[in-house]
């Protein structure tokens, strides 16, 4: 904490004296802003603390004061919590992250202040991740860019705190959840026959594949990818009716077979992870059947019977 220096009036000419008086008055005011802010912090009055400190932060004295940035960041974090704001544009959160990161970057905080600043940043970073997951749970078409941006903020905050922080698992989880969210919308049939249906299908597949890039051989992701591919093929097939021409039938078959062939690969990989899992055995039996491979389908049918007999 800085202390106010009293000018020695008698040693200096008048102009210097006036200058010192102005500087000292301004310095005292600035210091007292931090003191006042801290008093408001102790009282839990975040808005008053912010009002006392924020306007002073561009002044030269506080601009390089790690403690002042730390206090301001802490206040902004509390304001964010109290506001209930969310999303990329939640101003208090973005400001809090900026202030706390600035405080830490100066390498001048006490050990306990640094720990508190790191905890506060960790909380703010994880709030981005929580929000990203909440957005996935209530997923709507078009929400994806914001979800990925929230995830990006989470990663940048956490990796700024610890450059070695590994976000691989969370990335894999988020993409798997996004894959599931796309697939669930597809299953509602709300977008049946619209261009959005293909967008959703492509989105689900792309997210599952991205998730597998982060964590390969993840059983649920492999299984869900296989099911999404297979079900999308079946969805096309179910639209066949008496108005479908022979040419269209052949075209639809080509598309479906392509999807079924693609589905077979992750379904087999999932099966290798858990050879006795009934859902995968049934999946392989069904996909081979759809591919007009009755012998291969029967192999899995017999395996299902064997597994059921063991139970």
């Amino acid at each position: 904490m800085k202390t106010m220096q009293m000018p020695l009036f008698t040693r200096f000419p008048l102009t210097f004296t006036i200058g010192f008086i102005v500087l000292s008055t301004w310095t005292a005011a600035a210091q007292s802003s931090l003191d006042r802010a801290e008093a408001f912090v102790r009282a839990g009055n975040w808005d008053a603390a912010h009002a006392a400190l924020a306007p002073e932060m561009e002044n030269a004295l506080y601009a390089m004061d790690a403690r002042a940035w730390f206090v301001l960041g802490f206040v902004q974090k509390e304001q964010f919590k109290a506001s209930g704001a969310f999303g990329l544009d939640a101003a208090e959160r973005n400001k809090a992250v900026g202030s706390l990161q600035r405080a830490l970057a100066m390498n001048a905080l006490s050990a306990s202040d640094e720990e508190t600043a790191r905890d506060a940043l960790d909380f703010l970073g994880r709030s981005f991740f929580r929000e990203a997951i909440e957005r996935v749970e209530g997923f709507t078409l078009g929400a994806e860019p914001e979800i990925l941006a929230l995830m990006g903020r989470y990663e940048s905050v956490l990796q700024a705190l610890d450059p070695a922080y590994n976000v691989t698992e969370q990335r894999a989880d988020l993409h798997r959840y996004l894959g599931q969210a796309h697939a669930r919308l597809l299953e509602t049939e709300r977008f049946a026959g619209t261009p959005e249906e293909q967008v959703l299908s492509d989105g689900a597949i792309a997210h599952y594949e991205t998730s597998l890039n982060f964590v390969p051989s993840h059983y649920p992701t492999l299984y869900n990818l296989a099911i999404t591919l297979y079900n999308h093929g079946v969805r096309q097939l179910k639209r066949i009716n008496h108005e479908t021409s022979m040419f269209e039938l052949m075209e639809i078959q080509d598309v479906c077979v392509g999807l079924f062939e693609q589905a077979l690969v992750p379904m087999q990989q999932a099966h290798q992870q858990r050879p006795d899992r009934l859902e995968t055995l049934k999946g392989l039996m069904t996909v081979h059947y759809a591919l007009s491979q009755p012998e291969a389908s029967d192999v899995y049918k017999r395996k299902i019977e064997a597994v059921l007999q063991k139970k």
Binding site: E187, N224, I240, N241, L249, Q253, E279, A290
Partner: peptide
């Protein structure tokens, strides 16, 4: 969100769908 599988396999008889249209 959980770790499990969430999607269900569509149990439509795909070959029956195709063969029905051929028969028509």
């Amino acid at each position: 969100m959980g770790q499990g599988t969430t999607s269900g396999l569509d149990e439509t008889d795909t070959r029956a769908v195709t063969k029905a249209n051929f028969l028509f």
